[in-house]
Structures are given as structure tokens and as C-alpha cells.
């Protein structure tokens, strides 16, 4: 199968450094910032409310909501 994979113009260390920087930003956000936000009482209240109702905010289809079927995940 032929594909049209993107070709990067940048040479040397720049592409690898860009990827490393992006990875570090993601690690910082998910490792430090988001856990702190998740700990906020108002956030916890909202999250637990959805859990109690059997709602998955990431649901892709109705069947992803835990409440969609009696014997859900």
C-alpha cells in the first residue's frame, strides 16, 4: 500500500528536540497540572456526580455510557 506520509523538512536535532519538548509538556500537564485540578473539591463533585449517574463524558456511542445496559462495565 502506497501512502503519502508527511516529509519533514527540518534537519539535525531540531525535529527530535521539538518532539521531546512536546512530550515534556504533555508529561507536565498530565503528571502535575491535571491531577491538581482533579483534586479541587468542585471538580471532584462534578466528576462523582457523573459517575453516580452512569455517564461517561468520553462516550463515543450511547452504549459507552455505563448506564446504557444493566450489566455494564
Amino acid at each position: 500500500m502506497q501512502t503519502d506520509f508527511p516529509k519533514t523538512d527540518a534537519q539535525g536535532w531540531r525535529p527530535a528536540l521539538t518532539l521531546l519538548a512536546a512530550t515534556l509538556i504533555i508529561a507536565g500537564m498530565w503528571g502535575v497540572v491535571l491531577p491538581r485540578i482533579a483534586d479541587l473539591p468542585t471538580m471532584q463533585q462534578k466528576i462523582q456526580h457523573l459517575e453516580r449517574k452512569g455517564i461517561d463524558p468520553n462516550a463515543f456511542f450511547y452504549s459507552d455510557h455505563p448506564a446504557a445496559f444493566n450489566n455494564s462495565n
Binding site: I26, L34, I47, D56, P57, F60
Partner: peptide
């Protein structure tokens, strides 16, 4: 794993 973080999940920022 990134999508499953509680705050990210709450705002519907899914795995896609």
C-alpha cells in the same frame, strides 16, 4: 491513558 484522566474525561476530550 491521556483521555482517561478524570479532568480530560470530564470535558469530553476523547481518545480520538
Amino acid at each position: 491513558i491521556l483521555a482517561a484522566q478524570e479532568v480530560v474525561k470530564y470535558y469530553s476530550l476523547s481518545y480520538a
